[in-house]
Design a protein around this nucleic acid. Structure first.
Ligand SMILES: [Zn+2]
Ligand SMILES: [Zn+2]
Ligand SMILES: [Zn+2]
Ligand SMILES: [Zn+2]
Lengths: 159, 159
DNA sequence: CGCATAGTGTTACCTTGTAACATGGAGACC
DNA sequence: GGTCTCCATGTTACAAGGTAACACTATGCG
């Protein structure tokens, strides 16, 4: 089993690498990782869980970084548009990307018990979907693949 | 190309078959297809488009069938729980099922131009996803597969 | 300096969804 | 027939998610 959000790991490294990676990519691409944006990314990175925009906003407010919804939404727009975070449609919530750098549209695995979210490769499901769609004359541009179930740890403790 | 929401078809038959099928299944399963529930199903069946709960509620209100959000949500809960309608997570909206009867969890194809929604088989994408998830020790219980793109008609007119 | 562009602050509002409690109606049971 | 129970509905009141629009500020550039 490869290392994911679900398996024990050095999570401090997740955070620092996530931020570093964002800093690096922004520098290369001429994007501005402003304090608000950076802080929102850090907040998302704290845990491998999806967070609602208002939950994030509360944190920003406590820290004096902004108090109105658009502040949070704008930062989240920036992060998702540039691949540093993803939106989980099912949850109306956001999660930090764990593969920043690769150009990717992952599938999400959402644990219904502990709420942790992991990304996994969606190439195969996506290809299968595109194939099925082609048969109907539909051209797929983007696809969201979001699975709910139990993560390894919660599976274990359930049995 | 098989017949779908996207291709020209006798849509009157879609509506009447949709309702008949629901009536039949409810009778068999001992479920109550009450006036509100039936009417919501009919409204959803009118077009192969996803409708928001409040859009449906407006219709119910006009017709004197209910005026407060819970009325619409409860009917929609009933319909989705029993497979007569589906919720489209991406759109926070609902669409009538076009395969009522089969036990199925379809993938959705959403046209970004004309907003029509079609269902397609998701067995293959789902299987591919379950496979990928298994590698991470995650057990998939339900998965939403929602694709956005262009339907045959809109593809044609775009080119 | 003067200007353009991009990000932030704020107001005000809209949309989506639900908890909680009261009411009504149909069948089960005596 | 009465009454109990279950389920659906009616209603209030609010929580949660999301955005348009406009004013302001910082920053870089000719
Ligand atoms: Zn981690
Ligand atoms: Zn879990
Ligand atoms: Zn039809
Ligand atoms: Zn279309």
């Amino acid at each position: 089993m490869t290392e994911t959000s679900f398996t024990p790991h050095d999570h401090g490294a997740c955070i620092s690498q996530g931020v570093e990676e964002a800093v690096r990519q922004c520098r290369e691409a001429g994007l501005k990782l402003t304090p608000v944006r950076r802080r929102v990314l850090e907040i998302l990175l704290e845990r491998h869980r999806a967070m609602g925009a208002y939950e994030i906003l509360d944190r920003l407010r406590e820290e004096g970084l902004g108090s109105q919804p658009p502040v949070a939404y704008r930062a989240l727009d920036f992060l998702t548009a540039n691949g540093f975070a993803h939106r989980i449609e099912r949850l109306n919530a956001f999660v930090a990307c764990t593969h920043a750098g690769d150009d990717h549209t992952p599938a999400f695995l959402i644990c219904r018990n502990c709420s942790r979210v992991a990304e996994t490769d969606s190439t195969l499901p996506r290809r299968a979907l595109a194939e099925a769609a082609k048969g109907l004359g539909f051209s797929v541009e983007r696809a969201a693949v979001e699975a709910e179930g139990l993560c390894p740890a919660c599976l274990e403790s359930a049995s």
